[in-house]
């Protein structure tokens, strides 16, 4: 049940970010100065932590989504759904362990 709750919560969070993220991309039509000002608001430690949380949500939603597809379509999917949940958790932890040091370093250091 927790995988189901988490799938819904991460899905809603990603959807609202998607709305904002498309609007910030639309600012590309208003020229380099306007876009660089808007995208510049993403480049600080606070938003850096927000991006880390966003990526954590996306990676969980992606891996658990693959698990849902396997439960639906693989003949042994329901039998192994619990094992697959722990595989999702482990893969999520591995991917985040690779992503977080790189991203947090970029988010917490100045300059190009």
């Amino acid at each position: 049940m927790w995988s189901w709750v988490l799938h819904r919560i991460t899905g809603v969070a990603i959807f609202f970010f998607l709305l904002v993220h498309i609007l910030d991309s639309v600012v590309l039509n208003f020229g380099p100065d306007a876009y660089d000002r808007v995208i510049g608001t993403y480049k600080n430690p606070v938003l850096g932590l927000g991006e880390a949380a966003l990526v954590a949500a996306i990676v969980f939603h992606a891996l658990n989504g693959i698990r849902i597809i396997l439960i639906d379509l693989w003949s042994k999917g329901t039998r192994y759904q619990r094992a697959m949940f722990w595989i999702v958790v482990i893969l999520w932890a591995v991917l985040m362990a690779g992503f977080l040091p790189v991203h947090l370093h970029n988010a917490f250091t100045e300059g190009q």
Binding site: P32, Y35, Y42, N106, T109, Q112
Partner: peptide, 8 residues
Amino acid sequence: DGIKAVDF
């Protein structure tokens, strides 16, 4: 450079 390099 990740997020730092993203601009116009």
